[in-house]
Design a protein around this nucleic acid. Structure first.
Length: 671
DNA sequence: TCTCACACCTTTGAAGTGG
DNA sequence: CCACTTCAAAGGTGTGAGA
């Protein structure tokens, strides 16, 4: 079957994760590597688990597992799953769904991307703007899917905004704990997901490493790439064992900042974000007053500087403005144009009000038929400077070749739009609110579930060795952002707002289970969900990330997508029906907490990689045994109870180790 | 570079009103 | 009972001073 995603050409899609049977699931490799010493990172709020420990607690589980012949190192994990009665670790049976994913408001994203998108991260968490929103087609209407999103480092560089350009400023800081955001409406049927665009606007970005709200933790002045995942699964328990279809939209790449660096980005945000309306020129807000106080000469000087610099970096006046279809651009005509007003800078710049005509100028987006992405703001990649990551960001460097300009922003001149045909894009947010993920109108008034790993997330060659492809032979995955680099997938972290969907849709009982099922991750309390009383706070399993992964590989055929990324053989290929292990073993990359798995005495990278392959996994049949011997109590209630029990067991195991972690008093009701 | 309080704004939902 | 309007609270913005 031809990969529909690629045929759409709107999404950089790769489907590295395909269903693996329990026997295939290489998590066993991870489990084998996991050690009790690893668990101190697990965080459970004191008193959160009030129920008595199950009679078959962790120790009992371990014994049972040992009795079942499981690897000793796996005992407590496997046994927990065993006792949980996870009989059905089998993935959803393969269906002929044909997902097509289109990025909503792509034109707006393109505008930002051309300037070098910046996303503000704050301690209290900030939303993304533009909001990450996709429209999905081709799903099996009856089947249930879980939609996820995560944000991974695009490279391992730190950036600085110098001379109106983003430039590499050195090696990246240690990675923050990674979290996977599960759409609160998950799981839902394909029909529901396809009914309207799916928005992830509830996802928040933070630089607070100790965040307990489930926000996505990022490093300031680092570049990131959001990813979207579709998992066909009706049960979050099956997440780790299910097929992950991953989609990357290169235009959504951004640099995390604590304060905006590029005035043009600020202006674009103000002009398009309804919440920033008060700062618009037309508004009566502070900005109007501020402008009056602004020194015009200073502005003029700044603009001149920018223009000069832009002359040799294609970063000249890029005043976006074009009408932006806030709705699925691929599905509709140009649609509603976003309004654009000349920014403060533009006041003194004659050509500042240029309009970007995506059709004339070429998209930076994934569906752009252009070759090298000339408008990519990331023209200079640190991979040139980082020896061990030579091919990152293939989207812009693969074909374009190295650029002399080391600014990561290479902005092309834009078509002018003197008319300023702007359309307030407040509908973006308003519609977001409506669709709020598109399925249910549930209110996200709960702390999200989050599962975090410490595995490195950025696309890099280092991931290749850590990729686990279960049952893959002669197939290769390429990182769309890394030329020829394998895709790294690390669903080790999950963050979601369970109340809305999980509780309403019967998923809440899985919150705990997922952590156990994933062998990592955390939970966030949902006071209204079945687990609400048990998990008043977000739980953070700084636990092991993932199963080993090693990628067997084969280049993928050229695909149909015309995106810049599509040039990557992997991305442009038809979607392979592969069994793939989404988990990876941690590699020896710096860990913020210094609690990497390796440091915890886990397998060396090479060994991890080896173990990731099914063939070489030291415990290849663990899961199989687990399934074959698993108890049969897969009912939701049973799952709840068992999951709670497992958590309680783990809590007991690590009691005293996490006592110093103060639960947030507000964690119960973030809103 | 980051944090914080701030003003300004939208969103949301409860309360009120009228048919 | 339903639809509509009004209102206040909650929450999302960028700003700018200060650390």
């Amino acid at each position: 079957m031809r990969d529909p995603v690629f045929t759409t050409g709107t999404a950089m899609a790769y489907h590295p994760f395909h269903a693996h049977r329990a026997t295939d699931f290489p998590m066993s490799a991870f489990l084998a590597a996991a050690q009790p010493s690893f668990f101190p990172a697990l965080s459970l709020p004191p008193g959160a688990l009030t129920k008595p420990l199950p009679e078959h607690g962790l120790a009992g589980a371990a014994e049972a597992a040992a009795a079942a012949g499981l690897h000793p190192a796996l005992s407590h994990h496997q046994a927990a799953a065993h006792l949980r009665g996870l009989k059905s670790l089998e993935p959803e049976e393969e269906v002929d769904d044909d997902p097509k994913v289109n990025l909503e408001a792509k034109d707006l994203w393109d505008q930002f991307h051309k300037l070098g998108t910046e996303m503000v991260i704050t301690k209290s968490g900030r939303r993304m703007f533009p909001p990450f929103k996709v429209r999905i087609n081709g799903l099996d209407k009856k089947a249930k899917y879980i939609l996820l999103m995560d944000i991974v480092a695009a490279d391992d560089c730190r950036y600085k905004f110098h001379n109106s350009r983003w430039m590499v400023a050195g090696k990246a800081d240690p990675e923050m704990p990674k979290r996977m955001y599960i759409h609160p409406d998950s799981p839902a049927t394909g029909e529901q997901w396809m009914a309207k665009p799916v928005a992830f606007h509830k996802l928040k970005l933070t630089n607070n490493i100790s965040d307990k709200h489930g926000f996505t933790i990022l490093n300031s002045m680092h570049k990131y790439q959001p990813r979207f995942h579709i998992v066909r699964a009706n049960d979050i328990l099956k997440l780790p064992y299910s097929t992950f279809r991953t989609y990357v939209f290169p235009e959504t790449e951004f640099v995390a900042v604590t304060a905006y660096q590029n005035d043009k980005i600020t202006q674009l945000k103000i002009d398009n974000n309804p919440f920033a309306k008060g700062f618009r020129d037309t508004g009566n807000g502070r900005r109007e007053k501020r402008k009056q106080l602004t020194m015009p000469s200073l502005r003029m000087y700044e603009d001149q500087c920018k223009e000069r610099e832009g002359a040799d970096s294609d970063a000249s006046s890029t005043e976006p403005s074009a009408g932006r279809d806030t709705s699925h651009s691929p599905l509709g005509p140009g649609g509603s144009p976003l309004r654009f007003r000349p920014g403060r800078d533009e006041k003194t710049c004659s050509d500042s009000e240029a309009e970007l005509d995506p059709h004339d100028e070429g998209f930076t987006g994934s569906n752009s038929p252009v070759g090298p992405d000339p408008v990519s703001p990331y023209s200079s990649r640190c991979e040139d400077r980082v020896r061990d990551r030579p091919n990152n960001n293939a989207t812009t460097t693969a074909d374009a070749g190295p650029k002399k300009d080391h600014s990561i922003f290479s902005i092309r001149n834009l078509e002018k739009d003197k008319l300023g045909q702007r359309k307030d894009t407040s509908d973006i947010l308003s519609k977001d609110s409506e669709s709020s993920g598109g399925i249910s109108a549930s209110k996200d008034t709960f702390s999200p579930l989050m599962v975090q790993t410490e595995s490195p997330s950025h696309f890099s060659p280092s991931h290749l060795q850590s990729l686990a492809l279960s049952g893959l032979h002669g197939q290769q995955f390429f990182n769309p952002l890394s030329n020829g680099s394998p895709l790294l997938f690390h669903p080790g972290q999950f963050a979601m707002s369970p109340a809305g969907a999980f509780s309403a849709m019967g998923m809440s009982h899985l919150l705990a289970s997922v952590s156990g099922g994933l062998e990592n991750g955390g939970l966030t309390g949902d006071p209204h969900a079945p687990f609400g009383g048990l998990f008043p706070y977000p739980y953070t399993y700084m636990a092991a990330a993932a199963a080993a992964a090693s990628a067997s590989a084969s280049s993928l055929p050229a695909g149909a997508t015309s995106s810049p990324l599509s040039r990557n053989p992997f991305l442009s290929s038809t979607r392979p029906r592969l069994r793939f292990n989404p988990y990876q073993l941690p590699v020896s990359l710096p860990q913020p907490s210094g609690a990497s798995l390796l440091s915890a005495g886990l397998l060396p990278v090479s060994e991890c990689s080896k173990s990731g392959s099914r063939e070489s996994s030291p415990v290849p049949d663990i899961n199989h045994k687990l399934v074959s011997t698993g108890r049969a109590s897969a009912s939701p209630k049973s799952s709840i109870k068992d999951s709670v029990n497992e958590l309680q067991s783990i809590q007991r195991l690590v009691s005293g180790l996490e006592g110093q972690r103060e639960p947030s008093p507000r964690a119960n009701s973030p809103k």
